[in-house]
Design a protein around this nucleic acid. Structure first.
Lengths: 120, 120, 120, 120
DNA sequence: GTGGTCTAGACCACT
DNA sequence: GTGGTCTAGACCACA
């Protein structure tokens, strides 16, 4: 999917966010295994350690659990937790800043809704 | 103003953005001088080199000009240039991502407009 | 019994320790057979190889002996050997560290004996 | 101090515990900087990344804070938090198991207090 | 000077 | 097959 990496952000973080997104969006279901470290490493031409780092974050947050010798599995309930957490953080952290920015730059509703109009 | 620095972003960048914001918002007017490196360094307990770096960015973008022995002054026309540039970058880079995020998280207009309602 | 496995320790080790504990405590008596690999595998949903590994340790230590075609049997004298070995290792390896920890954390006798008091 | 490493535990974990211990015991005071990654790496002949990993844990737990370009500093209040956490975890997790072990192995008070007697 | 990130390659333990 | 750990060495951004 993400064929290319943004060079301004650590790969492991982008990877982490990608996995979270894929769980939220239901591409990886609860109870299923994450693609193995080696598999991802081969597919994306990335060092396995970089992937481990992303996967470690998911374990630290208890969204994923290790089954020794088998792999990492999405915990039950993770999808909802992730979704709620993303919503919360968007609404309480990012959105207020965005609103402030919009007001500072005196952007009109017309300008903001332009991309929506294009889709029609 | 800037009560504290976000430890995850370079200070010089935060400083740069703060100055731009203050010019756009008219707190520092065109033709006026920026606060001196020393002054800012003392006030914010920051390494002077860090401040120089932020100020250098403003010079590189020709939004500010050096008057030898006097300091840095906001060029005439800078406010408008900055404002337009920020608008453009917001509309073309940030806003599309924000819209996508809103759709992914299935946020309702109600949730998004809540903070506006509060202000009344 | 073993409701769940600690994902941070190898299963075969936990299994080994569990068997030792059950022999020491007399739940499995000398001369009796250990539950078969297949039985344990089915009951605990564990890979049979993992169980073999735990049972192999017991054979290597000659606490258990194989009777071809019948299974593994607890040797006579094993209970005492195990008990003594556990006592020794506890007193010489674990206990000194525990005492040191207690002193470092300045724990009072009161705090340490609280659980004993509860039992009354 | 810890001239040698226990080969059964990851070095980064031992390092983490050592730093926690040194803060609890007051050898590293609140507000002070941790020894730099490179310094420790040179002193103990360890790969810098291994040390980073230990230090990262301390940051994740918000016991230590980064000052960009300067180093890692012990947060105010960390000593007490660490001490309380270690006490809690000892009393609620380790100690009950120890008591159970003592009872299982039928160890006498005499045996347990022997090392204390030696000190006299 | 500081910490952070990544690579390439090795080895280990577990299932 | 799985993930975890470590090394050696490189490069980067920041103050």
């Amino acid at each position: 999917m993400a064929t290319q990496w943004d060079p301004d952000k650590p790969i492991y973080l982008q990877l982490y966010q990608q996995v979270v997104a894929r769980i939220i969006d239901g591409f990886i279901k609860e109870g299923e295994a994450l693609p193995s470290v080696r598999r991802v490493a081969a597919e994306y031409q990335i060092n396995p350690i970089t992937i481990s780092k992303a996967y470690q974050m998911l374990q630290d947050e208890e969204l994923v659990e290790k089954q020794r010798g088998k792999g990492l599995f999405v915990k039950h309930g993770s999808q909802e937790i992730m979704l709620n957490r993303e919503r919360d953080s968007f609404l309480t952290e990012q959105w207020p800043e965005i609103l402030q920015q919009i007001s500072r730059l005196q952007l009109s509703a017309e300008q903001l809704l332009a991309p929506c109009a294009e889709e029609n």
